[in-house]
């Protein structure tokens, strides 16, 4: 209880972390309540509403335009040209997008941390190869690499999980470099020497001694990796290389561009995914600033 109070007091000083976490809570609540209300197998997909009628922002199902008195607010967020209920898209799409980001971010952090730890710890040829690999891969723009991978796979095979794996194939680069440089400076510290003298194995030192000290960095890297992964998934989807059958936020934006929703005056169609995407990125940005402050106490009171 006291721990909780101390954490709350810290959050009051670290406003960006507080606001970021606040947005996270709101998004989680939105998704959770949404999944109770919608039918995730039907509502976010085409023809959730009758396709014969035009996209609408009426608060009524199209079958029953005069519902105001009996059953108001059937489509709070409106529907799109394929009859999707945009509220369902918002709920399911937010979760799918976060899923892709978390999956690619976690895999990327895992692989990157492993490469960073081992290459900095063991050094030698192995380190040289890993360093060159990371250097070369960081020069190649990730989006383009993903374009080559995704376009040769073809849209038939891409699912939400597949998308996560495709993006994971590049998301290890950043964490690998950051963690390697951190471990390099940590390797020479006395407690590592001590563990070595005690005859601890290399992997034991890495996981039991060094990893706990790097937890704040790992947390910050995870947020960074998730941000980059969501960024990449949005970009790929906007190019038409996303899981086109699933209502992720990126794919919804692809349809908005593809069907020129804005030029037809259907502003709500674009506003829903764009608003949520902006909210997600602002949230990740604020959390990463806040975590930076936790990880580098020196920045804490810079002013």
């Amino acid at each position: 209880m006291e721990r909780l109070q101390a954490n709350l007091r810290y959050l009051r000083r670290n406003t960006s972390l507080a606001i970021g976490l606040g947005i996270l809570v709101v998004l989680v609540l939105f998704t959770l309540t949404g999944y109770i209300i919608i039918d995730p197998k039907v509502d976010p997909y085409p023809l959730a509403g009758p396709a014969s009628s035009p996209p609408t922002l009426n608060y009524c199902p199209r079958s029953d335009p005069d519902c105001e008195k009996t059953e108001p607010k059937a489509y709070i967020f409106g529907t799109d040209a394929q009859g999707r209920d945009l509220y369902g898209v918002a709920v399911a799409g937010t979760w799918m997008t976060i899923q892709i980001g978390l999956m690619a971010g976690l895999i990327g952090l895992g692989v990157g941390a492993f490469l960073g730890f081992t290459s900095a710890f063991y050094g030698g040829w192995y380190d040289l190869v890993v360093r060159w690999m990371v250097d070369v891969m960081l020069t190649v723009p990730g989006l383009l690499l993903l374009v080559v991978i995704a376009s040769s796979l073809g849209d038939q095979t891409i699912s939400v999980t597949g998308m996560g794996f495709i993006i994971a194939s590049i998301s290890w680069r950043g964490p690998a470099r950051v963690i390697r440089s951190q471990v390099l400076s940590m390797r020479e510290q006395s407690y590592v020497m001590m563990a070595r003298l005690n005859g601890m194995s290399g992997m034991g030192i890495i996981f039991r001694e060094m990893m706990p000290n790097l937890l704040p960095y790992l947390g910050a890297s995870l947020v960074g990796a998730v941000t980059a992964a969501i960024f990449a998934s949005m970009g790929l989807a906007a190019l038409g290389l996303g899981p086109l059958r699933e209502p992720t936020l990126g794919v919804t934006i692809y349809w908005v561009i593809n069907q020129s929703a804005f030029l037809r005056g259907l502003w709500w169609w674009g506003a829903v995914p764009i608003g949520i995407v902006a909210l997600i990125f602002v949230m990740l940005f604020l959390i990463s600033i806040g975590l930076d402050e936790v990880a580098n106490p020196r920045v804490r009171r810079a002013e």
């Binding site: 970009g235 906007a238 561009i257 764009i274 902006a278 602002v282 990740l284 940005f285």
Partner: peptide
Amino acid sequence: IFGAVPAYVIALTLIY
């Protein structure tokens, strides 16, 4: 905060 949002999302909003 604008820096946190992808440029093409800003572009879409501007177009509208």
